[in-house]
C-alpha cells in the first residue's frame, strides 16, 4: 500500500503525525514524572503551550554569536523531522536506509554542539564539547548494534527490517544483546538521566541551550522533543516491530520505562559514560554481531 508522497510527508508519518506524537510524548513525560515524584505536574498540553509561548517571545542573540547560532536549531529540527518520514508506518513511503537514519539523527546532536559553540559562552562551549564527547561514546555500540540488525534482517532499509520481523518474529528475541545495547543509548541520545551530561542544568546551566531564547529556543526544544519520539520509535522498528498499532503501544511502554529510569538515576560523568558504552555496551553489541555473522 503506497500513499501519495505528499501525504506521507505532511500527514502520516510526516509532520502532523510526528508533531502530535511529539507533544503526546512530551506531555506524558512531564505528567508521569511529576506523579512519580509526588507532585501534581503541569497540564498535559504544557509542552505545546510552552512552544507557543516561546514563539511569541523575543529571541536574544549574543553579540559575539556566529550565524550558526540561528541556523543550528533550524537544521537540527529539519534533520530530525526527516527521520519519521522514513518510518514504515502506514505504507512504506520511502525505502528508508538505516545508515541514513543514523547520520540524520547525529546531525541533530551535532547541531546542538554547534549551537553551543557558536553562542560564545563558556557554558555553551563546555556543553558543546560534552555533546560531542557523548556522541563519540555512544556511536560505537549504536553502529555495531544496527549493523547486527541489518545483517540479521538481510536488509539495510527500515522497511526491509520491519518486513523481516513480520515474517520471522521480533528481532528482540534473536538479538537480545544488541537490543540492550541500543536501548542503553537512548537516554544518551535524547538527554535523559543518567546520561544528560551535555545539558546538565546544575553544572553547566543547560549547556548548549544556555544562551538560547525565544523562537530559537522553541525550535531547539521542539527538535529535542521530536528526537524523544523518533529515537524510541526507531528502537521499536529495529527490535520490536509487529504491526503499526503495536508500534504505537510498544513505543509508549518503552517511553514509560525510560521515564522511570530517568527519575531513579543521578547524572553520571563523561568518563563514566564512556566506560559504560565502550567497555560494556559495545561488547554486548559485538557479541550479537559475531553471532549473526557466524
Amino acid at each position: 500500500m503506497s500513499l501519495n508522497p505528499l501525504i506521507s510527508i505532511f500527514i502520516i508519518p510526516g509532520l502532523l503525525f510526528t508533531s502530535v506524537m511529539t507533544f503526546l510524548y512530551a506531555g506524558v513525560y512531564r505528567k508521569v514524572r511529576a506523579r512519580m515524584q509526588n507532585r501534581r505536574g503541569p497540564p498535559f498540553l504544557q509542552p505545546f503551550y510552552d512552544f507557543v509561548k516561546l514563539l511569541s517571545k523575543d529571541s536574544v542573540k549574543p553579540e559575539k554569536a556566529g550565524a550558526l547560532f540561528t541556523w543550528a536549531p533550524v537544521i537540527a529540527l529539519a534533520s530530525i523531522l526527516v527521520v519519521p518520514m522514513l518510518f514504515p508506518v502506514w505504507g512504506l513511503s520511502f525505502a528508508g536506509d538505516v545508515i541514513v537514519v543514523i547520520y540524520v539523527l547525529n546531525m541533530s546532536s551535532i547541531m546542538l554542539a554547534v549551537g553551543g559553540f557558536s553562542s560564545a559562552s563558556p557554558f555553551g562551549a563546555v556543553g558543546g564539547s560534552r555533546e560531542v564527547t557523548q556522541l563519540f561514546a555512544y556511536e560505537l555500540p549504536l553502529a555495531i548494534s544496527i549493523v547486527a540488525v541489518a545483517v540479521r534482517a538481510g536488509s539495510f532499509s527500515l522497511a526491509g527490517i520491519a518486513e523481516a520481523q513480520e515474517v520471522h518474529g521480533m528481532l528482540f528475541y534473536q538479538l537480545p544483546f544488541a537490543c540492550i545495547a541500543f536501548l542503553s543509548i537512548i537516554p544518551a541520545k535524547i538527554g535523559l538521566q543518567p546520561f544528560d551530561i551535555p545539558e546538565a542544568e546544575q553544572e553547566i546551566l543547560g549547556g548548549p541551550l544556555v544562551e538560547y531564547s525565544g523562537y530559537r529556543l522553541a525550535i531547539f526544544t521542539l527538535s529535542n522533543q521530536v528526537k524523544m519520539f523518533t529515537v524510541i520509535s526507531l528502537a521499536v522498528i529495529l527490535f520490536f516491530w509487529k504491526n503499526w498499532w503495536m508500534f504505537l503501544i510498544t513505543g509508549g511502554l518503552l517511553w514509560l520505562v525510560f521515564i522511570f529510569i530517568k527519575i531513579i538515576s543521578a547524572r553520571v560523568k563523561t568518563e563514566q559514560s564512556f566506560v559504560f558504552f565502550w567497555n560494556y555496551m559495545a561488547v554486548l553489541a559485538v557479541i550479537d554481531l559475531v553471532r549473526v555473522v557466524i
Binding site: 538521566q193 546538565a200 546544575q202 538515576s265
Partner: peptide, 8 residues
C-alpha cells in the same frame, strides 16, 4: 540529590 541530577 538535585545537584547530581536525581530530582525525585
Amino acid at each position: 540529590a538535585e545537584i547530581i541530577g536525581i530530582e525525585t
